[in-house]
């Protein structure tokens, strides 16, 4: 497809932490959509694969002043100095110029995991095991997404196959641009509280662009200069503070994943 004359998009999302209940529906929807195999019995929270991972954090105060919140962490789709792109020795990570999506190409991945050490958001996952689907469950596989093999790295790509489908549909209908409502990642659809808003940040009229402007939006580790395209927002000051406060001292918050 000729992308030269197309508009440049910058797909991104805004996650409203005030709406996130930590239910984990996004994680499940993501796994189903992207053909992530059921974890083996030996997998831990550090070796399993969840392209979006929900962390819990709190304000560190004792009861009754304790407050906690959840924060889903997909690939932050960095726009500048994308840490994983420059480090990959064999061009298995690329930023798609047309969509701004950071793409992982598992078939070209060597499995050196340098990109994983480079990612400050820990949003990259390695296939420590062979992907195995219990008999019968392979029927649930999504035909639009190829499963990955053992020994390669993978990560969230904003359900790229859905963008492809939307483009195909637009082309079939003779349109140059996709209908934004045709392209929504699985986690966005699945979120029961509608905490995730997805859209084109380059379009000032889009909902995401509006939300980013509203003043209570922020990004993780902004000081690193990676310009993520995943924004968070919260009306609670302590949430904005804690998420923006950099590395914590020991005795600090514990983490539980949802």
């Amino acid at each position: 497809m000729d992308t030269k004359n197309k508009k440049q998009h910058r797909y991104g999302m805004v996650i409203d932490l005030d709406k996130c209940t930590g239910c984990g529906a996004c994680m499940v929807a993501c796994a189903v959509e992207n053909n992530i195999p059921p974890a083996t019995a030996k997998a831990t929270d550090r070796t399993g694969i969840t392209w979006v991972r929900v962390y819990k954090f709190d304000n560190g105060l004792p009861f009754p002043n304790n407050r906690s919140a959840y924060i889903p962490m997909p690939c932050q789709q960095c726009g500048e100095h994308t840490p994983c792109v420059s480090v990959c020795p064999q061009k298995a990570v690329e930023v798609d110029a047309a969509s701004g999506i950071v793409a992982q190409i598992p078939v070209r991945c060597l499995g050196c995991r340098y990109c994983m050490t480079a990612c400050p958001y820990h949003a990259r996952y390695f296939n420590w095991w062979d992907p195995v689907w219990p008999a019968g469950m392979e029927k649930t596989l999504n035909p639009d997404v190829s499963p990955r093999m053992r020994g390669v790295v993978e990560k969230c790509n904003f359900c790229h196959e859905r963008l492809q489908a939307a483009r195909a549909k637009a082309a079939a209908e003779g349109r140059d641009e996709i209908d934004p409502s045709d392209y929504q990642p699985a986690c966005v659809e699945a979120c029961p509280t509608g905490a995730i808003t997805f859209g084109d940040l380059a379009d000032p009229n889009s909902e995401v662009a509006q939300l980013v402007q509203n003043g209570h939006a922020f990004r993780m580790l902004e000081t690193l200069g990676t310009e993520p395209k995943v924004y968070y927002r919260s009306d609670q000051a302590w949430v904005r503070q804690i998420a923006q406060q950099e590395v914590q001292k020991p005795k600090a918050k514990e983490k539980v994943h949802g």
């Binding site: 962390y55 819990k56 954090f57 924060i71 962490m73 400050p120 958001y121 820990h122 993780m220 580790l221 804690i242 998420a243 923006q244 406060q245 950099e246 590395v247 914590q248 020991p250 600090a252 918050k253 514990e254 983490k255």
Partner: peptide
């Protein structure tokens, strides 16, 4: 070392 503020060592 953790990088995310809510992450642990």
């Amino acid at each position: 070392l953790p990088t995310l503020p809510f992450d642990r060592f």
